[in-house]
Amino acid sequence: MSEAAVVVDDVSKKFRLYKEKNDSLKTALMRGRRSVHEDFWALRDVSFEVPEGSTFGLVGRNGSGKSTLLKCLAKILYPNSGSITSKGKVASLLEVGSGFHPELSGRENVYLNGSILGMSRKDVARKFDEIVEFSGVRKFIDQPVKNYSSGMYVRLGFSVAINVDPDVLVVDEILAVGDAAFQAKCKEKFAEFRRAGKTVILVTHSMGNIRDMCDHAAWLDNGTLRQVGDAQSVMSAYTADIGKGDR
């Protein structure tokens, strides 16, 4: 196994489930203490390594903690214990087009979104044509994005994000963006990524995607790690488990 691009070490993440949440002063004052809650462990002692240059799939049922883990990888959430260390720049594609300003033109939004995702102005300028070409909205690039169709909107957002050029790309269930032609382009882009030796971590429910794209996978179940290893064996164990039906 080559060197690890991301090391997830004993990560646990707890959420508080509020029975009665005090988010107004009145309720806080009347109840005296902060609030009544109960802990929920979305992730518990999860450890694995993502080898450099691999495409790593995260699988599991709904609510198994995949997205929480992904958000921890993307530094949006912080684990309560354990640590995540990654080599190089990490970019995340959790939702595309967030941060677009509806009144601004596509062009202005590309620059804005690029900088939110951590690109410098120079980077965006250098890649601008590539971004616009990839999105296929060249004709409308100087129109305000509020006039875009929802497909154009996500395509432009996705094009910006995919051009951030990170060492590790974290992707949530967004391969379902756009029409078939655009999806094919996306897959090609991921393949290009892999050829360049970059690491991709993705969550998907599509077995096909995992089989086509991933070489390694981890299976999460109720916040704990069930199995990690090469994609084939993890997938067959996971499909076998699903076959057993709901417990």
Binding site: H101, L104, E108, Y111, L112, S115, I116, G118, P144
Partner: peptide
């Protein structure tokens, strides 16, 4: 290091406010 983001967010507000 991310001062460009500050600039871009600022200009988003400045430009967006009086559009149209």
């Amino acid at each position: 290091a991310s001062r460009e983001l500050f600039y871009n967010l600022t200009m988003r507000d400045v430009k967006g406010k009086y559009r149209r």
